[in-house]
Design a protein around this nucleic acid. Structure first.
Ligand code: MN
Ligand code: MN
Ligand code: ZN
Ligand code: ZN
Lengths: 138, 138
DNA sequence: AAAAGACATGCAACCGATTTGCAAAGTTTA
DNA sequence: TAAACTTTGCAAATCGGTTGCATGTCTTTT
């Protein structure tokens, strides 16, 4: 993705397009699986972990990325689709491969509805499937 | 639950019923919501966190309890139902209340099936709903 | 019963992921 | 330009979870 496109994503979410943010956004856009803070840190020649951390926080707050709790103990991050508001209706299932350890957004798989007990109010959901991904299932 | 019942639960899962284990199991049986290590620690007058930790690990390995990753950063534990083998089929949905911070087992709500993309193999699942529990929804 | 073995417990210290504090650098505003 | 605000970098703290190791307890063997 070119600089113009990256900048416009940030602008659309009212996040100032600093050099650092453009770099991080670009890197996120290149990933095929969701990335942890450490994953991203490794892919930079030199970057401050805390700045990266805060950049991700900012992105998350402005719905540029969403964080995924796949149960591994380290949060993963992936780009939100354009116009995503991270509402329960927008949410998709995530898949964590136990072999290659990658976590994928199954963006076409919406989380099935569960009707809760009486009076419970639903605000958020998290659904993670674990097993073998297509590459590892052989 | 009386000592005899607690002992038989442990025996049924081949876990030696030590004084400590009986105490912990009794405490778990009294909870209406899933408990974290710290939750349990607070409820004892005096207990070593590591011993408590290892007791929970042992219980989990022997399927006396299951652990719940509700996304709060601290694992919660709750008793398994009798004869539970923690298979994908046995699994139920969990609900975390964002107000009172309690996490509940919705034992009657099985996780709905999602048919994964071609070649993906499912081994485990985790589904957590978040929002307001019946007490907090008012 | 004494010795040996096996398992359980307690305390200290470590670990990885995340978060905070604070000062320096960079930007925007007046 | 000077003040005000935001972003960045480095150090250090926090937090939940985990490991190492010595001690205690209970069981089995001699
Ligand atoms: Mn996703
Ligand atoms: Mn449960
Ligand atoms: Zn894989
Ligand atoms: Zn509640």
């Amino acid at each position: 993705m070119n600089d113009k496109q990256l900048t416009s994503i940030l602008n659309a979410r009212s996040v100032k397009p600093t050099a650092m943010r453009l770099l991080v956004l670009d890197m996120l856009a290149q990933q095929e699986a969701a990335s942890s803070l450490s994953d991203l840190e490794e892919q930079f020649d030199k970057v401050d972990k805390v700045t990266l951390y805060r950049t991700l926080k900012t992105f998350e707050q402005h719905k540029i990325i969403h964080s995924i709790d796949d149960g591994t103990g380290s949060a993963k991050y992936a780009l939100c689709s354009e116009g995503c508001e991270c509402n329960p209706g927008d949410l998709h299932v995530h898949f964590h491969c136990q072999v290659c350890k990658r976590t994928f957004c199954l963006t076409d798989y919406t989380i099935p509805a569960v009707n809760l007990p009486h009076k419970f109010v639903l605000k958020e959901m998290n659904m993670v499937m674990k097993g073998l991904c297509e590459d590892c299932a052989g």
